[in-house]
Amino acid sequence: MRPTAGLGFKPEHFDEAHARRAAGLWFEVHPENYMVDGGPRLAMLEALRGEHPLSLHGVGLSLAAAADPDPRHLERLRVLADRFEPFVVSEHLAWSAWGGNYHPDLLPFPRTEAALARVARNVERTQDALGRRILIENPSLYMPLDGHELGEVEFLTALSRRTGCGLLVDVNNVYVSANNLGFSARDYLDALPAAAIGEIHLAGHAADARHGADLLIDTHGAPVAEPVWSLYARLVARIGVRPTLIERDEDVPAFADLMAERDRAAEVLLGEAIRSAHETVDA
C-alpha cells in the first residue's frame, strides 16, 4: 500500500500508532532524535517501522549555511536511512548550525545566486552521502530580508532542477509566510513545479501574542486551519496525490484526534485518486 496520509510520530502514542491499521498510514520522525547508539528509542522505531512506512525529516543539517554539511551528522543520517529504509528523506531550506553553535530553529537567508550555488552543493553532498534523492521543505518566514536575487519558488525550482532533489511543500508555512510578508499563498502554490513535489506537510499556526494576526507563527501547536485545508485541496487538485503529513509538536492531543485530521487528508487524496482515475478512463 502506497503511503497516503501520515502523522508525526509521538513516542507517547507508540502503542496506538504501532497497532493502528489504516490504508497508507505512515509516520515521520526527526532523525536527530534517533542519533543514539542503542536503547528504547531505537527499539520503538524498529517496532513502528515493522508495521508502517517511515519518513525521516531532518532539522539539523543546516543546508543553507555557508559551510559543508557536517560529515559526522551526514554519516549518522546515512546509518539511520540504511537501517530503517524510509520511503522518503527530507530536510529544510534553512540553516541552523553555524560557527560551532547549533540554534534549534530554521533560520532564513538572502536568496542570492551565490546562496543557490551553496545550497545546491550542500544538497548534492547530502544526496551523494545517502545514495538517494532528498526533498527540501519551504520555510516559514517572519520578516522580509534585503538582498534577495531570487523569489522563493524560483529558488526552489532552480534547486530542484540543478540537483535532482524534490520539494516538500509545507502548505501551512506558505500560508504563514504569505501572511507575514504580504504575498499570495495561492499564487505561490500555483507556481510550484508539480513533478518536483514529493510530499506535503500540513500543520497549525498561532497569532503572535504582541503583534496579533499580522505575525503568524508556525507553532505546530493547533489543528490545521481551514484556509490551509482549502489551499491543500487546491494543490492536490492541480498536482495529484502526494504523501501528506499532519504535523503536531505542541499541545499534542489524543491519538484519535490526530488520526481524525489524518483521515481528513486521506479523504482529499482518495477523492483526487478517484477523480483522476475517471479522467484516465474517460480519456
Binding site: 536527530e32 532524535n33 542519533m35 543514539v36 532539522v59 539539523g60 543539517l61 543546516s62 557536517d70 551528522h73 549518522r76 541552523s96 548550525a97 560551532g100 553553535n101 547549533y102 540554534h103 534549534p104
Partner: peptide, 8 residues
C-alpha cells in the same frame, strides 16, 4: 550553546 543538532 548546543554544538550538536542531536539534542538528545
Amino acid at each position: 550553546w548546543p554544538s550538536d543538532p542531536s539534542l538528545v
